[in-house]
Nucleic acid binder design. Sequence first.
DNA 1: CAGTGAGCGAGCTTCCGCTTGACTT
Length: 774
Amino acid sequence: MAKNLVIVESPAKAKTIEGFLGKEFTVKSSFGHVRDLSKNDLGVDVTNDFKPNYIISQDKKKIVAELKKLASTAEVVWLASDEDREGEAISWHLIQALDLKESKTRRIVFHEITKDAILNAIKNPRPLDVNLVDAQQARRVLDRLVGFELSPVLWRKVKPSLSAGRVQSVAVRLISEREKEIEKFNSISSFKVVGDFIVNRDSKDYVLHAELNKRFEKKDEAEVFLKKCVNASYSISSVETKPSKKSPSPPFTTSTLQQEASRKLGFSVSKTMIVAQQLYESGKITYMRTDSYNLSDMALSTAKNEIISSFGKEYQQTRQYTTKTKGAQEAHEAIRPTYISNHSIDGDVSQKRLYEMIWKRTIASQMSDALLEKTNVNIAVSSASEEFVARGEVIKFEGFLKVYIESTDDENDENGKGTLPEVFKDEILDMQEISAIERFTLHLPRYTEATLVKKLEELGIGRPSTYAPTISTIQKRGYVVLETREGKERSYTTITLKNNKISSKNNTEIYGYEKSKLFPTDIGNLVNLFLMEHFSDILDYNFTANVEKEFDEIAEGNKIWNNMIKEFYAPFKIKVTDIQKNSEKVSGEKLLGIEPESGKNVYVKLGRFGPMVQLGEADENNKPRFAGLLKNQSMETITLAEALDLFKLPRKVGIYKDEEITAAIGRFGPYVKYGNAFYSLFKTDDPHTVTLERAIEVIEEKLDKDSKKLIKEFDKNPEVKILNGRWGAYIAIGKENYKIPKDKKPEELTLEDCILISKQPKKPAKRGFRKGNN
DNA sequence: CAGTGAGCGAGCTTCCGCTTGACTT
């Protein structure tokens, strides 16, 4: 039995560390937190100084029992959870849950996984920092109170099963308010003027592409300018060359890794984390949930050697970056390759690509600046005061650009790259062509998953371990959707001067194409409005930053955590109670207009099952009619005509064999109903116009398919059937379905085979969620 | 994933941060 038990948070870390320590040490992992507030109630006794009710988490009971057993026989238990607020709390919870005696317990910390760092930590144990633990308790209790008090308000006032929280509600706010700004935005057009000029060198022509230093608001003004250019002469008024430089970006943190993987590899935030976790578990990269730019001394020196041997001494520059992120806890290193000498790795395509990106970014961060030379050439027009400007950029020394070019979120950034031909002041140029092109101002961009993470990090909201889950939560709740929306067409004008002739042309272009962007839903907008009206203090972008300051005071021992919570909770609870009692239910109800036939009002509002339209009001004699909005409709944009269309369904299509056929749109798309059964229509069928012939065709097709559904049944047990489904044959027993192994022929299966297959363990259900619209 | 088609009624839902699983004699 080992004399020493070391407990860390992550099993991969445990494995590595065990290799550093001798036989006297057993290293185990707690798998993160082992206890949490009870889930069935508030979990906090608000009448008793906010005493938390901690429970060993269901999925941690086994590991706690195992650790307890090991701890009882060990001479010393070393608590080596991370050196941050949560890590300190994990150690404290372990002391409580494992019932550790102070005399044989040591708290140690390190923030890089190297042998030296671990051995040094063992030599320098420190007492548990109870103030830091209290700061974590304050954080935990505050989040619980906010979440479990606000969510029930939403259940009653908006819709059941909704949620609110310190982090998720701000994320929704960002998306909802950005969309409002975009709706309000008016695009203005102006005319950008570009000219191509010819430079002749050694009897070869070079084109100098330049842009006028002024834009014209109106088409006439642009025309006036072009007229002036007819027969004008063009000369170079100045040539300015100045050196500049570019420095590499720091190595990756969770947030920057997610952003760059999104831009360069097209990975979603969750995909990045899944692949990074695989790399981490196979020992290829350091820990992937970090907010630190720090690299260990060992990493710095191996990077240095690597760069010098691969590229040469002049490419190397040791750099240590400092974090400026709000609320960073810096318990880990930056994300880097474990072995920097490995330029690439074995693995699947995603793993290889992500690893390569991490390797390049890490290496580049330790390389020298790129030296550039920027040139501005001004071209004067003899008949006008405006000047054309040509910009060029030449790389004099690549530096870090040799391995890594960071991409940007800016979608139109093409200006001033490349070399210019050598030109001289007062040189006269031939003009080849000048065009005035109508350009439009752009609204602020919608958030992608990755730019939302970037914004949240800037605001200090959320942690590396929660960025991906937060994005998933606000989609699960139906507050936002991740969508690609097609652009629209618009026309723009180009006026061209060529060969002394001015011509004008209308062209068309596609604009507003949005790829994988986050859009708010009606529910998201409504919940945001509601929370902003009543709880704007919690939705404030600075709320987290402000409470973080108080957590810091608690951590420094200058504040008592229960007092901080009390100051927050007293007014908050009064507000919650008041709203629950006195506030009206919100539905976002809006009068769209009047139905011409009946003269009844048509409303759009949020109902129990989502957005819907309503015809007429409820009174003693009449019930209003309701109809749900279609998937591509929203409360914000639906028109009266579209709403009236919704009431036309279900529509009588006709009679077939003495039974009526009706057509409507349901949760799963358009369908026809015949007798008591439903038949899905195709995407190309419109229930408003579908003919009786087509409806019968769809019905007969389905009936035909159903008749072929049954492959085999058994007299001995009518419960068991072999059926043909959408994904091939399967076994149905009662209400349960089972997959047939690939090597078996469905027709040949016996009853015994079926029973045997049904006893096989089932694959675990996917953790994914349905993108419900209800 | 194995088949669905609602209408504001008896039940339940929810937070943020740590960390990975995938039951068994």
